[in-house]
Write a protein that binds this DNA or RNA. Structure first.
Lengths: 245, 245
DNA sequence: ACCTGAACACCGTTCAAGT
DNA sequence: ACCTGAACACCGTTCAAGT
C-alpha cells in the first residue's frame, strides 16, 4: 500500500505565501479557500488549522506584503525618509495589484500594520514635528502612506486587480473621441495626458501623478511645521495662516 | 381564486432604491440578489429583468447616491465651489457608509460618474486653471473628491460598512493603554486626538481631519496656479519652485 | 497534531416554462 | 412583457471522524 505523504508539511507561512501567489495570478476575487487548498494539494478544511477563517487569511496576506516594504533609511531628513518609504510601499503595491483593495478592506489592525504606522509616525516626530501636527499629517497622508491613490481615469483593471483585458488601441481611441464629445472637460484632460494620439488613457496615475500629490502634501506639511502650526480648537479654517499673503 | 398582483410594478428605479435602503440597513456584504428580492416580495430572478447582473446593480446604486450630491454653487470662486461640493459629497457618503467601498470597486465609468467628474473639472477650468494643472490637480484630489479618505485610527466599522458593534468605553480605554505600551508613537497620537480620557479612539477623521487635508491640497493648488505652474517633462520634482525660499 | 469527507446554509446566474 | 421554479456550479464553514 503506497502512502503519499505531502511533500512539505503545511504551515501558516506556506499558506500565506501561496495565497499571495494565487492572488497575484488570478486576482483577489477568484481567490477562495477551496481554490487555495487545491493549489496546495490539500482539502479545503486543512487550511483551517493554520488560519482561523478567510478574514484572517487576508490579514495574513497583508502582513506578507507589508514585510516587503523597505526598512526606513537610516540617515536623511524626515522628508526624504518619508518620501522613500512611501515610494517603496508603492513599488510593492504595484507588484501585488490586489493589495490595495485588501488593505482598504482591513479593519483589524494587525501588529505588522501597527508597526508600520508606528515607524512612520516616528519619522515626523524625529523631524521635530509636534504630536499635534503629526497626528493631522498622518490623516492627510491617509492611504497614500501605503503608496496608492484612487485611480480616476485609468483603464479598468480586471475584477479584483487581475490583469486588465487586452483592448485594441483603435477601440480606445474611438471610445476617447465619443467621451470627449459628451464630456468636453474630461476630453481636454485626457488629451493633455496623452503623449501621442493612441495612448488616450495612458500616462495617468504613473510615478508623476503620484509624486505630484505626495510632494504637494509633503511641502504643505513642511510649511505648517516651519510656521509653528498648531490646531486651534473651534477654528473653522485651522491653517488660515496659509491663506495670508 | 385569489390573484395577489404585486402592490407596485417592479422597475429599475424601485430596485435601485430598495438596494440602497437594504445596504444602509444591513451593510453591503449582506446585500445579495436573493436578499434584495425578498425585500421586494419577489423571486430572485425577477430582478434580472431590471438589472443585467449584480455588477450593474452596484453601478446603479452609485448613480443613486451621486445624484444626492448637491449641485454646484452658482456663484463664488473655484476654491469655495470645489470645497462646498466635496463637503456635500462627504455628507452623502456619511449617510451611506457602504458607498465608499462600492465607489472604489467600480471600474465602469457610468454616465452619472462621468458627469460628476466633468463638472468638477469645469470648476478648475472656470477658475482659470490650465488644462495641464487641472489634470494633475484632479489626480491629487483623488478619492477625496468623493468626500472620503482612508481611515487609519477609527474604530472598526462592521463588515461592509454596517453599523459598528457596541464596545464598552472601559474596554476601549484598556485596549488603548495596551496599544500605547507597545507602540508609543501611536499612543501619543491617540492621546492628542482624545479630548477626554475615555474617548481614545474618537475624534478622528471627523470634519476637522477631512478639512485639514482638503484645505492643505486646495491651498497647494492655489499656490501652483498663481505661480503659473506647468508640468516640465523630465523634471523629477515637478514643482521644485515650492521648495525655493 | 494534523488532515479528511460529508454536510449545511448560503451565493450569482442559466434555462425553460408560465401568465 | 414580466415573473416563476428548478437547477447548476460555486462559496465559507460546521462537525465528527480518521491517522
Amino acid at each position: 500500500m503506497v502512502m503519499t505523504t505531502p511533500r512539505v508539511r503545511l504551515n501558516r507561512d506556506r499558506v500565506l505565501q501561496a495565497a499571495v501567489g494565487v492572488a497575484d495570478q488570478i486576482g483577489i476575487d477568484a481567490l477562495s479557500m477551496r481554490r487555495l487548498a487545491e493549489e496546495l494539494g490539500v482539502v479545503p478544511m486543512a487550511l483551517y488549522k493554520h488560519v482561523a477563517n478567510k478574514e484572517q487569511l487576508l490579514d495574513g496576506m497583508v502582513e506578507v506584503i507589508v514585510a516587503e516594504i523597505d526598512p526606513p533609511a537610516q540617515h536623511g531628513d524626515w522628508k526624504s525618509t518619508v518620501r522613500q518609504r512611501v515610494l517603496s510601499a508603492r513599488r510593492v503595491l504595484l507588484r501585488h495589484p490586489w493589495a490595495r483593495q485588501v488593505l482598504e478592506s482591513r479593519t483589524d489592525h494587525t501588529p505588522t500594520v501597527l508597526a508600520y504606522l508606528e515607524s512612520t509616525i516616528g519619522m515626523f516626530l524625529a523631524g521635530g514635528f509636534s504630536v499635534d501636527l503629526t497626528h493631522h499629517v498622518m490623516h492627510a497622508l491617509g492611504s497614500r502612506m501605503w503608496g496608492f491613490t484612487q485611480e480616476l481615469f485609468d483603464q479598468p483593471a480586471g475584477p479584483g486587480g487581475a490583469a486588465p483585458a487586452e483592448v485594441p488601441p483603435e477601440t480606445i481611441a474611438a471610445q476617447g473621441r465619443l467621451l470627449a464629445e459628451r464630456y468636453p472637460n474630461i476630453g481636454q484632460i485626457s488629451a493633455a495626458a496623452a503623449h501621442d494620439d493612441t495612448a488616450v488613457a495612458r500616462g495617468c496615475d504613473d510615478r508623476f501623478e503620484f509624486e505630484f500629490a505626495l510632494d504637494l502634501l509633503l511641502d504643505g506639511f513642511e510649511r505648517l511645521h516651519q510656521s509653528g502650526w498648531s490646531s486651534a480648537p473651534g477654528s473653522e479654517h485651522p491653517h488660515a495662516e496659509l491663506l495670508a499673503p
